[in-house]
Amino acid sequence: MYEILKSAHSGWRYLVIILLLVAFVNALIGYAGKKPYTEGNRKLNLFTLISAHIQLLLGLVLYFMHDWYRGDSAVAAQRYWKMEHIGMMVLAIVLITVGNSRAKKAATDLIKHRSVFMYFGLALLLITAAIFAMVKADPSRSLFGM
């Protein structure tokens, strides 16, 4: 069961990153071009939010199934998986959630695009930093975690 969940978590990340990147670029174009916030924008942001939350649930199940919380914090790779990875990913998903929520509640289309651009952009930056931190902590892993 663990290997199936690990494979699902590993594969699902690509969907999350692609959706997050597309939503970020879409919001940038909408914000810079002062375009209307459409139903398509809303759905893209919602799908990004849902995919990130599914990834979080898969990750939390793996975290507790594998007992990562018991790892030795003195060892860089164990510390990364025990604290850094989960902390950065939870924060990134919180940013995605806040960005989507603020976009839903915003009064104007420009503010909606700006909210998604800012919060999804910060989440994307945090996820990218986590990828680089993973490679630094565990040199056996490649840039895309394979």
Rank of each mutant, 00 (worst) to 15 (best):
A106S: 03
V61P: 00
A106T: 00
G71Q: 01
K105T: 07
T97A: 06
L58F: 13
A52S: 11
S7A: 15
P36S: 10
E39A: 14
S115M: 05
F132R: 05
N26Y: 14
T48I: 13
Y14D: 00
H113W: 01
K105M: 03
K43N: 09
K34W: 02
G145V: 12
A74H: 03
R102K: 14
S51F: 13
G11I: 09
V90F: 11
M88F: 12
S10N: 03
F24L: 12
R70H: 13
G71K: 03
F117V: 08
I50D: 15
A27E: 01
F120G: 08
I18M: 11
G99F: 13
M134G: 12
I93N: 07
A8D: 11
L21V: 12
S115E: 01
A8G: 04
S115L: 02
I18Y: 02
S140R: 07
K43R: 11
E84Q: 15
L20R: 08
M146H: 07
S101F: 05
L58T: 10
G71S: 01
R79G: 11
H85I: 09
I4P: 05
V94H: 03
L110F: 04
Q78F: 07
G99R: 04
L126A: 12
S101H: 04
M134D: 05
V116A: 00
K112P: 00
L19E: 07
L28A: 06
N41V: 08
L143P: 09
P36K: 05
V94D: 08
G145L: 15
Y63S: 10
S73T: 08
S73L: 07
W12A: 10
Y119W: 04
V116F: 02
Y119G: 02
T108A: 00
D72F: 09
V90L: 12
S51I: 07
H66N: 15
S73P: 00
